[in-house]
Simulated assay, not measured.
Amino acid sequence: MPKDSKAKEMHQVEMMIGYILRIGVVVSAIVIVIGIIMMLVQGTGGYPNGVQPTGFRSIFNGVMALKPYAVMMFGLFLLILTPTLRVAVSIYAFAVERDRLYVWITTIVLIILIVASVIGYLGH
Results as ranks from 00 to 15, higher is better:
1 M>H: 05
2 P>V: 04
3 K>H: 10
3 K>T: 09
4 D>S: 07
5 S>G: 00
5 S>T: 12
8 K>W: 11
8 K>G: 15
9 E>F: 05
9 E>N: 02
10 M>H: 07
12 Q>Y: 07
12 Q>K: 14
13 V>D: 05
16 M>W: 13
19 Y>A: 07
20 I>V: 08
21 L>Q: 02
22 R>K: 11
23 I>P: 02
24 G>W: 02
25 V>H: 02
29 A>S: 10
30 I>M: 10
30 I>C: 11
30 I>W: 02
35 G>R: 03
36 I>Y: 00
37 I>C: 12
40 L>M: 02
41 V>K: 07
42 Q>M: 10
42 Q>T: 08
42 Q>R: 06
43 G>R: 02
46 G>Y: 00
48 P>R: 07
50 G>R: 02
53 P>Y: 01
54 T>E: 07
54 T>N: 10
55 G>D: 15
57 R>K: 14
58 S>C: 01
58 S>N: 09
62 G>A: 09
63 V>M: 10
64 M>F: 05
65 A>R: 07
65 A>Y: 05
66 L>F: 13
66 L>R: 02
66 L>C: 05
67 K>F: 03
70 A>P: 04
70 A>M: 06
72 M>S: 01
76 L>I: 10
77 F>T: 12
78 L>W: 08
78 L>A: 07
80 I>F: 15
80 I>S: 13
81 L>K: 08
91 I>W: 12
93 A>Q: 13
94 F>T: 05
95 A>N: 15
96 V>S: 09
97 E>Y: 09
97 E>H: 08
105 I>H: 07
105 I>S: 06
108 I>F: 12
113 L>I: 14
113 L>R: 05
113 L>F: 11
114 I>D: 05
117 S>E: 08
118 V>T: 09
119 I>F: 11
119 I>S: 11
121 Y>V: 04
122 L>E: 13
122 L>D: 13
123 G>R: 11
123 G>Y: 13
